[in-house]
């Protein structure tokens, strides 16, 4: 059987395709294996850095060191002070910062619907879950230049130290309503947030996500405190 006639058989294309697949997929598999650890480590690092920076304020006060040095000391500081735990009946990732046997604050991974897709955020709470201590949105698909500005520092900083818990809250309804004011105005009441111009839906999505998720979180927290 000459080479030429073999090339004309039905078998040849099948064998060729098979061989090509094995070669290329093999190369890819090796490459992927090689960088898999690096990719995962990067993802974990950036996530943990957000958690650490959100909880850095109470931590640095308790340890009397500057937040900057705390963040500099990243893998160590994270491993020493921050623990991942959970709250009863809540399927969100929950972290807490602990120093000298006192819980200094919690950080909860929350998610919600934005304009174009889901967004995920980390929100730091005071130990009694009454006050927001910090907010970071780490995944979002909003319109660049408009809705995507929810990732900007000034917008997120507005949520710092807002006491969200209602004084007369009852089951399933613990969180105050947020109120929006136009961008550039100064807040006159505690729950007021400057809205991003041209991105009404995205802005309200953020507060809706916060309200819904913090409600769930507080319900779970109550379950833990008074089972």
């Amino acid at each position: 059987m000459s080479d030429k006639s073999f090339k004309d058989t039905m078998l040849y294309p099948i064998l060729f395709m098979l061989a090509a697949c094995i070669v290329f997929v093999g190369v890819l598999a090796i490459m992927y294996r090689g960088s898999e650890a690096k990719i995962r480590a990067y993802k974990q690092d950036s996530y943990q850095k957000i958690v650490l920076s959100l909880l850095s304020e109470p931590l640095s006060q308790a340890l009397s060191m500057k937040p900057f040095y705390l963040l500099q000391d990243y893998p160590n500081a994270y491993n020493t002070y921050i623990t991942e735990s959970s709250l009863p009946g809540l399927d969100r990732r929950v972290f807490y910062a602990k120093a000298e046997d006192t819980i200094l604050g919690y950080c909860v991974d929350i998610g919600g619907k934005g304009l174009w897709g889901t967004m995920r955020a980390l929100v730091a709470m005071s130990p009694d879950f009454k006050t927001i201590k910090g907010l970071a949105i780490y995944e979002q698909m909003e319109t660049p230049g408009l809705g995507a500005r929810i990732g900007e520092e000034w917008f997120l900083a507005q949520f710092n130290d807002i006491q969200v818990l209602k004084l007369d809250g009852n089951a399933g309804n613990y969180i105050n309503d947020f109120e929006y004011i136009p961008e550039g105005q100064t807040a006159s009441k505690p729950m007021q947030i400057q809205q991003i111009t041209g991105a009404t839906i995205t802005s309200t999505s953020v507060t809706r996500m916060l309200k819904d998720e913090l409600n769930l979180t507080y319900t779970a927290y109550l379950r833990q405190v008074q089972p």
């Binding site: 490459m31 960088s35 690096k38 990719i39 990067y42 950036s46």
Partner: peptide, 11 residues
């Protein structure tokens, strides 16, 4: 290959 490279080195 490009995708993996970017994910690993320019996340």
């Amino acid at each position: 290959i490009v995708d993996i490279f970017l994910q690993a080195n320019l996340p």
